[in-house]
Computed example of a mutant assay.
Amino acid sequence: MKLSVLINNFNYGQYLRPCIDSVLSQDYPDFEVIVVDDGSTDNSREILASYGERILTVLKQNGGQASSFNAGFAAASGDILFLLDADDSFLPGKLARIAEIYDRNEIDWCFDRVTTDEGDPPPAQLQVTLFDKRDTLRRGGFPSLPVPTSGLSFRHNLLSQILPMSVAKDVVLSDNYIKFAAAYLGRGAIVETPLTFQRIHASNRYTGTSRAKTLRPRIMIATGLELARRYDGLHALGKSLVAGGIAETTSLLRLRSETRNTVAGGPFGDDAVNEVAFMAARKRLGNMLRRGQS
């Protein structure tokens, strides 16, 4: 069984070598590394060139993360495809252990949780939960899939039903669409024990940044629209995501105004006003989504 690791990169030159090296040092016997550079303007392309034929490099104009997924998939020849952000890395032994999970189980996808502690060693044992929420998704429910891009892997034939995907700037349409689509199309597994290191830093496009607060409703709306457009069985989920994104956007605008009026004249700046509004909006959205879960 051949594996393909699809690394997407945009101006992450400072993290690129640890990322690529974490894959090249894997002990699995048959895999390829494909790095898609999405129009970087730093030293990324010089770093990629230094690896020669050890990796397959796809150079393209900047088009966003979704376009990088599409380009990597088009170049891949593996039976199992892994996604990896260029600022993250795989723990030693990940490829072999995930491949074994595919061998032992009739699954179409496998998501492994991540650690944000770079010093974490590979786990001695894995906790694997088989996951089949296809009926829940058809009813418009929201199964929990709390795994970022770098923890995702798929059988090639499943991902061929998802990619190529529509493109959008930045990360507005990216891994959430892929995760929900995969869970709708097939049976999977979640590895509860981290096999991937996710790096949290000042240049993150979403995770751990203040931008996440304003990006989240845009992601929900874009993801919901695309899922409903692409899959007949996901109309209910798509509508729920769009409604949630609109509700959160509306709540943020209204609550920000209300909060500003409440704290006017006090020792609070815009950051405090925004944070209070976001906390209230998240609570309202969480209550709404829980009512739609199964």
Rank of each mutant, 00 (worst) to 15 (best):
N8Y: 02
L84A: 10
N261Y: 06
D135T: 11
P267E: 02
K213N: 03
I219W: 01
S40M: 10
K2D: 01
K213Y: 12
S174Y: 09
F31R: 07
S50M: 04
L289K: 13
L95Y: 08
Y28P: 02
F131L: 12
I20Q: 06
T116I: 12
L225F: 02
D170I: 08
K60L: 07
T223K: 10
V58L: 11
A212C: 01
R290F: 02
L48N: 11
Y231M: 08
F180I: 03
K94I: 00
A247R: 15
T209C: 02
R54Q: 15
E258C: 10
S203C: 04
P123S: 09
I178F: 09
Y184W: 07
I107K: 03
S68F: 05
E192V: 11
L227Y: 07
T223E: 06
D132C: 11
L6N: 01
D88W: 13
T250I: 12
C19P: 10
T129F: 07
G52P: 06
T259R: 11
C19Y: 06
D120M: 15
Y177F: 15
P29S: 05
R260P: 01
V35M: 03
F82G: 05
T214D: 08
T57E: 05
R290M: 08
F111E: 04
A236K: 15
T207I: 07
D79V: 03
S40R: 10
F69A: 00
A243D: 13
S153W: 04
G269Y: 12
V58P: 02
L225V: 14
T207N: 04
F268H: 13
A168P: 03
N274F: 14
L48R: 08
V242A: 13
